[in-house]
């Protein structure tokens, strides 16, 4: 089936795309919403403009849709982007990286239902630890580009998701109830390499900004 990937460039949407491809589907386009609202309810925001570089190494066309990121208006913008994907790339379904967010998942389901296309959520309800281990097993190289919860701080920016990361995040899960896969928005990630990429992306420049337990890393990749 021809699928459009709701794509943020973070681990969830890239891994969902990987699973869809592995199941024999055709990844026809990536759909990225660029939200002006950094606190968007629907869309992952840090480093999102870097999805262009990922689309290039995946050799998949990218649909970029700007949105002001106001609560329900951004859903109209998402619908517009999915309609473009249906018209331009003849997609028959979308694939998302939703894990637990009923808010995000049910809104995407509504849009797909209205547009009469399939909606795939291959990470739905997935156990956090099992998920991170699978990412490592499948050779995903992932960088932390945002932290937004106590006790995470600027020292976590730029870290790779590796065995050490999994061990530490599991401890923080026990103490602070941080979701192991960051599904509560505790941290955001950016994929530098995976089996869908023709070559690994290199970080050319970066700027860290933030305070306390809320930090972002804006990266430039090539």
């Amino acid at each position: 089936m021809k699928l459009g990937v709701l794509f943020s460039g973070g681990k969830d949407s890239v891994y969902a795309a990987y699973l869809a491809k592995k199941a024999g589907h055709n990844l026809s386009c990536l759909i990225t919403l660029i939200s002006k609202n950094k606190e968007s309810y629907m869309f992952h925001t840090p480093s999102i403009e870097k999805t262009k570089a990922q689309a290039k190494v995946m050799k998949i066309p990218l649909i970029e849709q700007k949105t002001k990121g106001e609560k329900e208006k951004e859903l109209k913008d998402l619908e517009k982007a999915i309609k473009t994907a249906i018209e331009k790339y003849k997609i028959e379904g979308v694939v998302t990286g939703a894990i637990e967010s009923v808010y995000q998942a049910s809104r995407v389901q509504e849009i797909c239902n209205k547009l009469n296309i399939e909606c795939f959520n291959p990470l739905w309800q997935k156990d956090g630890e099992e998920y991170l281990e699978e990412l490592l097993k499948n050779k995903f190289k992932i960088m932390i580009v945002g932290v937004f919860a106590e006790p995470l701080n600027e020292n976590w920016l730029g870290r790779a998701i590796d065995e050490k990361f999994i061990k530490e995040i599991k401890e923080l899960h026990k103490k602070y109830k941080i979701h192991i896969a960051g599904e509560g928005g505790e941290f955001e990630s950016f994929v530098l390499n995976c089996p869908l990429f023709e070559k690994e992306l290199e970080v050319k420049k970066f700027v860290d900004s933030g305070k306390g337990n809320s930090w972002r890393k804006e990266v430039e990749v090539r």
Binding site: A23, P122, Q125, D127
Partner: peptide, 15 residues
């Protein structure tokens, strides 16, 4: 009817 959907509708129950 799609194997990919089993990750969403079957695997959570297996877990």
């Amino acid at each position: 009817s799609e194997t990919l959907h089993e990750l969403e509708f079957v695997k959570p129950i297996e877990d």
